[in-house]
Design a protein around this nucleic acid. Structure first.
Length: 687
RNA sequence: GCCGGGAUAGCUCAACGGUAGAGCACCUGAUUUGUAAUCAGGUGGUUGAGGGUUCAAAUCCCUUUCCCGGCUCCA
């Protein structure tokens, strides 16, 4: 549940929000006319429209929408006035008790959510109703004047939502809708929805052959990059590698798994075990394991001897004797293997004895198995790289960079195309520095973000500065109160001094320190955390990382975790929607498609392709039985960035006709000039 | 993980208790083309999986996997 809004804040609702919120009341009225016993909870305006949460025995499905919408239509036609009524607390409680609140009439059952809402209103705050026709709702408003002001609306979906957003509360039915001043705006919205569907990265990703999600064989949330998508991530990696190289980073490479000790040390296991894949249990091939697997039948048989006490010697062998001469025990067991137990009792004894023997052998020889975890983050591996060599203050700042593949066990219901996956290729780096170097390093990271945003034309973004909360210390956050405050001050200062636009969000930090998340919006309105930049004052200490300072003392470095391009998965997902699949030349999976008009030009076209590919341009020639128009249509549909069309006239003039995806025919130009321009556009990463 | 809705050819969809079909894609052939669809033919399916009801199941029922819309979560 969001923070309770003050009355003043509520009054600041925009015109559109007032309209949406009013439509929520109209929706509620319609529901009550159809199902008078509905228990209403909340009906706020949200970014796109509005919803109303309610509890109702009847399960509302989209099939009910026409019926509800028809009723809503009647209500807007009735043009009811939204009338504000101020009441006393006692009156409000009474109306909730009699079921009148959030209803059309008094009802046998109290309006239980409204009752709770009344009770949660702070003493002294005015309590108001809004009344439209018979519908009376506890509501701070504001509203439009009349229901008739709502010119157009539509119910969009029905879902469930936890009461007050708490997983432990029961789920209510939530009906979503949109509302507009007039029909034209509704139509515009519908058009936008169509456009959004068209741009959906899942749809474009399949159409363009960028990636595949093979849940059956690979697993849900584990993306396969197809060659076209692979081309994009190669470009992104090149961009990152070049940028990081120039910024003084060094590249490392680490395995995808690590032993349990790693994550016990990092603190991830206690804090984030749930979002890691369960461990692989690896039992090394010890003497006891080998023995058991080779002699399991003999061992079983031999247990009969326990009862008869015949071959105690087999168990009295010392571990060393067995280890040095496994044949001894085997022989002993073999000798008594002819003995057999009869009946149920014998079977039970045998089973117990087998278990005892196995445990004994395991405890003696095998010890604890090894647990390996798929890494959910790269930092621990990088910390171990830090400690793999002695470090001096002269080495600092040390910027270790890697495109590391991490695995996170996201909840099944959370997976979403490429945006939320279980294997992530992170544009990761850890910067180890001294407190004195921190401001400059942190600033440089932020600058790098801005540089990237410019390349991709990302204009709308917010840096969210997430800080800790005192209550979370020792639970959600490492229990080092003074370091939290100190580090957060440090970050805040850098942000203020650099003049970067940011907003502070309490109680959202990483467990080891404050972080900055970069929120962006794709053109179709989807919001993402694209990149992240975190300060870690805790984990380097847990790993005992130190560098030798000028004064010959060992100091623990600060660590900045940063991932300006986030993960390949989310970033490419974002880019697909951002560009609607129409990537700039440098990113386009298919950069150049050369189309000879007749067979006569094939040799000439092959030469052009060869020249382009020699310069690492993703170019190919396409000649088929189709007419030119058809081939152009297919090239456009495939979103090939640049088409070079070559007919007899072009070849005679050593020229090519250029057509750019979405821009149409640009005319015939000298071949050398065209190729030079293509190379320049790629090199400069022109938008 | 929770609530709800889905899953038919590579893609978009049809058949809604009675012989699984169309367009595009793909393959073959003809056509050699000047800027968003040349023509003809052909291949393609255990209807997500498993069970049940029925003379008969893509269709009805149950289980399960996955996907979608939300919620919760998100280092």
């Amino acid at each position: 549940m969001a923070e309770r809004k003050t009355l003043d804040e509520r009054q600041q609702m925009s015109e559109a929000e007032r309209l949406r919120h009013s439509c929520a009341h109209v929706l509620a009225t319609a529901i009550l006319r159809l199902w008078p016993d509905a228990q209403l909870a909340y009906g706020p305006a949200v970014e796109e429209g509005y919803y109303y949460d309610l509890d109702l025995k009847h399960r509302i499905t989209p099939d009910d929408f026409p019926k509800i919408e028809a009723e809503m239509k009647k209500i807007t036609k009735e043009n009811l006035v939204f009338e504000k009524v101020t009441v006393t607390r006692e009156q409000a409680l009474r109306d909730a008790e009699t079921g009148r609140l959030g209803a059309l009439t008094e009802r046998p059952e109290p309006s239980r959510f409204k009752l709770e809402n009344v009770r949660s209103i702070p003493e002294g705050e005015a309590i108001t109703y809004y009344k439209s026709g018979d519908f009376l709702d506890l509501c701070a408003g504001p509203h439009v004047m009349r229901t008739g002001n709502i010119g157009a609306f539509k119910l969009t979906s029905v879902a469930s939502a936890y009461y007050k957003g708490d997983e432990k509360n029961p789920q209510l039915q939530r009906i979503y809708g949109v509302a507009f001043k007039n029909k034209t705006q509704l139509e515009e919205w519908e058009k936008m929805q169509e456009e959004a569907k068209r741009r959906d990265h899942r749809k474009l990703g399949a159409e363009m052959g960028l990636f595949a999600l093979d849940a059956e064989y690979v697993g849900p949330g584990l993306a396969l990059w197809l060659p076209a998508g692979g081309a994009i991530i190669e470009e992104l990696e090149t961009l990152a590698k070049q940028t990081e190289f120039q910024a003084g980073y060094v590249r490392v490479k680490t395995p995808h798994i690590a032993r349990k000790l790693m994550y016990e040390t990092s603190g991830h296991l206690p804090y984030y075990a749930d979002s890691m894949f369960p461990p692989m249990v690896v039992r090394e091939n010890t003497t006891a394991d080998r023995f058991l697997s080779e002699n399991i039948e003999v061992a079983e048989e031999s247990l009969t001897m326990l009862r008869d006490g015949l071959v105690k010697a087999g168990f009295l062998l010392s571990p060393d004797e067995v280890r040095n001469n496994p044949g001894l025990l085997r022989d002993a067991l073999a000798r008594i293997s002819s003995l057999r137990m009869e009946g149920d009792v014998g079977e039970v004894i045998k089973q117990n004895a087998l278990y005892a023997l196995q445990s004994e052998l395991r405890a003696t020889y095998a010890g604890e198995p090894n647990y390996y975890y798929l890494k959910a983050m790269n930092c621990p591996h990088h910390h171990r790289i830090f400690s793999a060599q002695p470090r001096s203050y002269r080495d600092m700042p040390l910027r270790l960079a890697e495109y590391g593949c991490c695995y996170r066990y996201e909840q099944s219901g959370e997976l979403f195309g490429l945006m939320r996956v279980r294997s992530l290729n992170m544009n990761d780096s850890h910067i180890y520095c001294s407190p004195e170097q921190f401001a400059q390093e942190f600033n440089a990271v932020n600058e790098m973000y801005l540089k990237y945003f410019k390349i991709f034309g990302i204009e709308k973004y917010v840096m969210r500065f997430s800080t800790h909360s005192k209550e979370g210390l020792g639970k959600k956050y490492v229990d080092q109160a003074d370091l939290w405050v100190k580090t957060e001050d440090m970050v805040r200062r850098v942000l203020k001094e650099s003049g970067i636009n940011y907003e502070e969000v309490p109680n959202e930090a990483a467990f080891y320190g404050p972080k900055i998340d970069v929120q962006v919006w794709s053109v179709i309105g989807r919001e993402f955390t694209l990149a992240t930049n975190q300060v870690d004052f805790a984990v380097p200490g847990r790993f005992g990382l130190v560098y030798r300072d000028k004064d010959n003392s060992d100091k623990t470095p600060l660590c900045i975790h940063r991932a300006p391009l986030g993960t390949h998965e989310r970033f490419v997902g974002f880019l697909i929607e951002h560009y609607a699949g129409n990537f700039p030349l440098w990113l386009a999976p298919e950069q150049v498609r050369v189309l000879p008009i007749t067979q006569e030009q094939i040799a000439y076209c092959e030469e052009i392709v060869k020249e382009l590919r020699g310069q690492y341009v993703r170019a190919s020639m396409e000649f088929s039985n189709d007419k030119l128009q058809g081939r152009i249509k297919r090239a456009e549909e495939a979103k090939a960035h640049t088409m070079l069309i070559v007919g007899g006239r072009d070849q005679a003039a050593n020229a090519v006709s250029v057509r750019v995806h979405g821009k149409g025919d640009l005319g015939s130009k000298p071949r050398a000039e065209v190729i030079a321009d293509i190379l320049a556009a790629i090199r400069e990463r022109r938008p």
